[in-house]
Computed example of a mutant assay.
Amino acid sequence: MTVGPATFKQLHLQGVRREFDAFTALKGLDLTIERGEFIALLGPSGCGKTTALNCIAGLLPVSGGRIMLDDRRVDVLRPEERGFGMVFQNYALFPHMTVRKNIGFGLRMRGVPKPELEKRVDAALAAVRLESQAGKLPGQLSGGQQQRVAIARAIVVEPPLVLMDEPLSNLDAKLRLEMRQEIRRIHQSLGSTTIYVTHDQEEALSLADRIVVLRDGAIRQVGTPAELYALPAHLDVADFMGFRNRVNGELVGMEGEDALLDIEGTVIRGRMRAASSGRAAVAAIRPDDLEPTGTDSGIPVRVEAVEYRGRGFHGVGVTASGTELHFASPYPLQRGAAVRLGADAGRVLVFGDAR
């Protein structure tokens, strides 16, 4: 017996583990997802995000813990009994079937009467804006259109959850941007619940209500896009959220909420995000927030490269110790020039003990 269409209030992952022989891919995930949320599982390759999705879908059994839909345990059910919608990277469309038949395949397997099937397929075609392509074969469609067919096939069965595993990774940059907007529009118009796997922080930021950052099979941080963008709790999360510059320094004091960090003889200010048990600490700064100061303050670097990027310039500088820093500049700089780089204290995050 299947779970039924969109009737749940919460999905609970309770201590979910997944082991492959001696390797533990998931280390006791605890997470609650509310009905209607768009959740992004974000992290680098091998962090466990696709494994987590496959465990929720039933494509992999859990090694420990439980997956609950409200008070119903679903990790003991077969994938088809869970009734979740799944969108893969490779679309997995039947090449010999028309768009309409691909979308209606799951309904036919469920024995849905033809009048109801046609009505729901029409609604799904309208949701993904493919009414005019209904009679075509997948090979006659663009990559973005094929992905829309895959999404329509997932939502037409009215699943309680839609699970997406890096669905845009095979598309070019322009199509990815268009499909991001389309996926968000479909999610909002249907009021569905979506769990979306990605390694792209821009995708996660633009799509998700909440982002779950994973590393080495464990959850590192859960929060809204704004929370994770501005205040990552760990250095590895900061690195993944675009804080590309990581500079080692020595913690020399605090002034109010500002940490004072000595970097190669220059003291900079930043927000303390993780307490230090000693004096060693790391400053994390986004390239867009680090700019030439035009004064005697800031971290001294030698300019190694400068690229024009439309509204401004992107530079790479090297400190006396060899640390490479990426920065923004409103004006061009000559290679080999000596400049000092600085950022507002609120844009500099300081992590003690390099964690």
Results as ranks from 00 to 15, higher is better:
I195C: 02
Y196R: 01
V197M: 02
V197N: 01
T198C: 03
H199P: 00
H199D: 00
H199R: 10
D200F: 08
Q201I: 04
E202L: 15
E203W: 08
L205D: 10
L205R: 12
L205M: 14
L205A: 12
L207R: 13
A208V: 14
A208K: 02
V212Y: 03
V212N: 10
V212K: 13
V212F: 15
V213Q: 04
L214M: 14
L214K: 00
D216E: 14
G217V: 06
A218W: 07
R220T: 09
Q221C: 12
Q221T: 09
T224E: 07
T224G: 03
P225K: 11
P225S: 10
L228F: 11
L228C: 01
L228P: 08
Y229S: 07
Y229N: 09
A230P: 03
A230E: 13
P232Q: 02
P232K: 02
A233D: 02
A233C: 01
A233Y: 10
A233P: 07
H234Q: 09
L235R: 09
L235N: 04
L235P: 08
D236I: 04
D236E: 15
V237G: 00
V237P: 06
V237Q: 01
V237A: 09
A238R: 13
A238P: 04
D239S: 05
F240T: 03
F240E: 00
F240Q: 01
F240A: 08
M241Q: 00
G242Q: 05
G242K: 14
G242L: 12
G242W: 09
F243M: 09
F243I: 00
R244K: 09
R244M: 15
R244I: 14
N245H: 03
V247A: 08
N248L: 13
N248T: 09
G249Y: 04
E250C: 05
E250I: 15
E250R: 08
L251F: 02
L251P: 00
L251Q: 04
G253R: 07
G253W: 03
G253E: 07
G253S: 01
G256E: 05
E257A: 15
E257H: 12
D258S: 12
D258F: 03
A259C: 14
L260T: 07
L260P: 07
D262Q: 02
D262I: 01
I263V: 10
I263A: 04
E264G: 08
G265V: 00
I268H: 01
I268L: 12
R269Y: 01
R271T: 12
R273Q: 14
A275V: 11
A275Y: 05
S276F: 08
S276W: 04
S276M: 12
S276D: 01
S276Y: 14
A281K: 03
V282N: 03
V282K: 12
A283W: 10
A283C: 04
A284E: 06
I285F: 00
I285L: 13
I285Q: 11
R286H: 05
R286G: 06
R286C: 07
D288I: 14
D288V: 13
D288A: 14
D289P: 09
L290D: 01
P292Y: 07
P292A: 08
T293F: 10
G294Y: 13
T295A: 06
T295S: 15
D296R: 11
D296Y: 00
D296S: 06
S297L: 03
S297G: 02
